[in-house]
């Protein structure tokens, strides 16, 4: 499958990576090169083969329902580039 510029723009938008118009074309070419190589997978017959998720050597463990964490607001907020009082902040979002 070959990647067009519109699709490149769409996935950059989906991934929230702001690319300049001139970067889009370079990116498209690069990704296209990789996709061309990846297309060799088409020749593998996977009829009846289940997908592998993780490495499947264990089953999912569960934890007890106990409160063991939290109350570390200051330590967490100290890592943030911008805060206001007890909150993280972002440009105003209109819903």
């Amino acid at each position: 499958m070959s990647l067009d510029l519109a699709t490149t723009r769409r996935i950059a938008k989906l991934a929230r990576i702001g690319l300049e118009e001139h970067e889009l074309e370079a990116t498209r070419q690069k990704l296209n090169g990789i996709l061309g190589w990846i297309d060799q997978l088409a020749e593998v017959d996977v009829t009846g083969v289940p997908p592998m998720v993780g490495t499947e050597t264990e089953t999912l463990r569960q934890r007890e329902d106990k409160v063991t964490d939290g109350n570390s607001r200051d330590a967490l907020l100290a890592c943030a580039p911008e805060t206001s009082g007890p909150f993280y902040t972002v440009p105003k979002v209109v819903e």
């Binding site: 499958m1 990846i38 997978l41 996977v46 083969v49 289940p50 997908p51 592998m52």
Partner: peptide, 15 residues
């Protein structure tokens, strides 16, 4: 389906 799911299936074959 064409990429990710296919790759996961091929991963099963590799394993």
């Amino acid at each position: 389906d064409a990429y990710y799911l296919k790759a996961q299936k091929v991963r099963t074959l590799i394993r």
